[in-house]
């Protein structure tokens, strides 16, 4: 890590210095002692950003499927459950929802006599998962509905129940179409996890904010912050492309 930064950062520094003297890269120069400590401080938020995103995405993937299912029903009252959830949840901006979950929800729990403290970590996860689940639900629904009707009819005629036909026939085919948009959602979650900094979660953005306050170098620190997200997202993209190739390979 130190090596990579030793090579790349000077390049940035040079490009910055060449145009003007507004850049002060010394603050995160890995060759100096303070610079290296600062970099380590900034990157120390990476673990929580990844953890929050992965847990929230996992919950959202399961919750989204549960929300999508009633949307596929023939009966409209059941379909309404899906519509109401999706329309309601996706209309709430993430930040107000985060405030509501972190500051509001504990009051509701208290009034019910429950002592459920919501720390920043779980507050962020709950908010991201619920907010995202409305979108994953729509992705599932679209993916499942894109499978020709003949597939479920054929499944019925060989005696499969609805859940068997979902499990063995429809979902395995739908997942290939669902995966790319689902990966998009994961990238979205990673980026939206930055909001967790507002309720005190010490993830990437919060670390950057903290350092800016002590070093007064917002330009350089936020530039590095953006690069941190860029690296994360590029890694996810590469992983998804690998997964898609692997799943696509055995389709035909």
């Amino acid at each position: 890590m130190k090596k990579i930064l030793t090579f790349t950062l000077p390049l940035l520094i040079l490009s910055g210095c060449s145009s003007s003297s507004i850049w002060g890269w010394y603050v995160i120069d890995p060759r100096t002692n303070t610079g290296w400590i600062n970099i380590k401080f900034l990157i120390s938020g990476m673990g929580d950003t990844i953890l929050i995103s992965v847990i929230a995405a996992t919950i959202s993937i399961i919750l989204g499927l549960l929300v999508a299912m009633p949307g596929l029903s023939n009966r409209w009252p059941i379909r309404m459950i899906n519509r109401v959830y999706v329309e309601f949840v996706r209309s709430i901006p993430l930040l107000p929802m985060l405030f509501w979950v972190f500051y509001g929800l504990p009051i509701i729990f208290q009034s019910m006599g429950l002592n459920v403290p919501i720390d920043p970590f779980w507050g962020a996860i709950i908010t991201l998962a619920i907010s995202d689940s409305a979108f994953t639900a729509e992705i599932y629904r679209a993916g499942i509905q894109s499978i020709p009707k003949g597939q479920s009819e054929a499944a019925q005629t060989i005696g499969l129940t609805y859940s068997q036909s979902m499990r063995y026939v429809i979902l395995p085919q739908a997942i290939r179409r669902i995966l790319p948009p689902l990966a998009n959602q994961f990238i979205y979650i990673v980026k939206m996890s930055a909001f967790a900094s507002v309720i005190g979660m010490q993830e990437l953005t919060r670390r950057a904010n903290e350092l800016v306050v002590t070093e007064y170098r917002p330009l350089e620190i936020y530039t590095l912050l953006i690069l941190e997200y860029l690296v994360l997202v590029l890694i996810i993209s590469a992983g998804v492309r690998w997964l898609e190739r692997r799943m696509g390979a055995d389709e035909r």
Binding site: Q151, A154, I158, G159, L160, T161, Q164, E251
Partner: peptide
């Protein structure tokens, strides 16, 4: 339109019903 299951082998297409439903 045949409606075979494209993600399964021919053999799995044939055995799915007997195994899961029967």
């Amino acid at each position: 339109q045949f409606n075979l299951f494209p993600h399964l082998t021919v053999l799995d297409n044939l055995t799915l019903g007997p195994i899961k439903a029967r």
